[in-house]
Amino acid sequence: MRIRTRSAVLAAAAVLFLAPATFPAAAQESASSRLLGTYVVPHDLRVDGTPVGGLSSVDYDRRSGNFVFVSDDWSDYAPARYYRADVSVTERGVEDVTFTGVTLFRRPDGTTYPTIDTWREEQHQVPRPLRNVLGTVDPEELRVDPLTGEVAWTNEGQRNVPADGSERETVLLDPALRISHHDGRYVRDLPTAPNEKMTMGETGPRVNETFEGLTYTADGMQVVSALEGPLEQDGPPANADHGAFSRITVHDRAGLPTAQYAYPVEPLFAQPQPPNDWNTNGISSLLADEQPGRFLALERGYASGIGTKGRIFEFSTVGADDVMGRYSLAGGGFRAVQKKLLVDLDEIGVPYTDNVEGISWGPLLSTGERVLLVVSDNNFSPNQQTQLIAIAVR
């Protein structure tokens, strides 16, 4: 999800002159985690002619030893793509980040993905509603397959329905889970659960709240996806007064959905100012732990006039009910996943939290702790930051 903040402009501007920079960890730390440091990527950084920005996920490629970052650019600034980078993380924090290359995603015919406006122009003779998810993409999360080295990534999709409900101008782009070769060539799309298809708006995913989370289990035998927020029929999105239920879907190695679980999204951390202004809270990244059935979820909240908050929760699907066949979660009557707070970025001393959207495991430290790396999406705005935040987790 793109979050274009207004209230964070002054706070961001106050620290932009530090880029690139590393901040020492503050004294605060929780019982299970501590801040190692943060690093700010220069806003004007370009790799092979493309602007490095909109980084909405991070993952460690154990085959190459480097990290991969997907850009959620809808081909507006450059064709849809992902980056590779060498990231040096030690007990002293993120010491250096060197972007080593960019890979453009390809459609089945080998071409890059166009902007959504260009794609709509190309489709002006096609009967509506348009549903071709291969025509244009909005990437959100990318993971390296631990068994093959291919990359799995999500496309958020889109719904554009005219006020009169006419199919003549309707665009319904189903959210997608896509597999590409490491060089960007298209391989295939994974099946998605029936309730994750775009509709005219009464049911199904909400626009800009679809596949934000994706992860492989540690053994590589399952792919797990997460919707950012609730389905239309699952109740309203989370706000400062109440939380919401998102859905976590487990896919087998072939990609077939096998189970779906209700995930309780936290209420928004503060009332927006003014109270009726724009706000959101939901899952922006999903990461598997080594223990079967256990995962981490990054919840990113934004309250207009207040700012952004990032919290990482640990949860387990063990003991939760499979809700794939349940039409709505609004009425309760099921067991959701059990979760607990692992990291609150404010409480461990992150000096400034921007639009955090991705998490990945990093190296083991000599202390026995494991690094958890967080990345923020700057929305290509000079008033926001591309941050890398390194956390040591016991």
Rank of each mutant, 00 (worst) to 15 (best):
A12N: 15
P114D: 04
V350G: 01
G53P: 08
V223I: 14
A288Q: 03
D322T: 05
L214H: 08
V9I: 14
L286A: 07
R143D: 14
Q260V: 04
E167S: 13
L104V: 14
P351I: 13
L10E: 14
D322R: 01
W74S: 04
N383E: 12
A270F: 00
L16Q: 12
E196I: 10
E140H: 08
S304H: 13
L227E: 00
E122R: 01
F245G: 06
S360T: 12
P257K: 08
D219G: 07
T5E: 12
A259R: 09
V250F: 05
P275C: 11
P272M: 05
L342D: 02
A320Y: 03
L342N: 10
G349F: 03
R84A: 08
T367A: 10
A320G: 00
R159D: 06
P382G: 09
A31L: 14
G110Q: 05
L10G: 13
S33I: 01
G310T: 06
I248A: 00
P20T: 06
R6H: 11
S33E: 07
S225D: 13
T90A: 11
F315G: 09
S57I: 05
L10R: 15
M221Y: 08
G65Y: 03
G333W: 12
A27W: 02
A320C: 09
P24W: 08
T280I: 08
R188N: 06
P114Y: 12
L286V: 12
A14I: 04
V171Y: 02
Q28G: 09
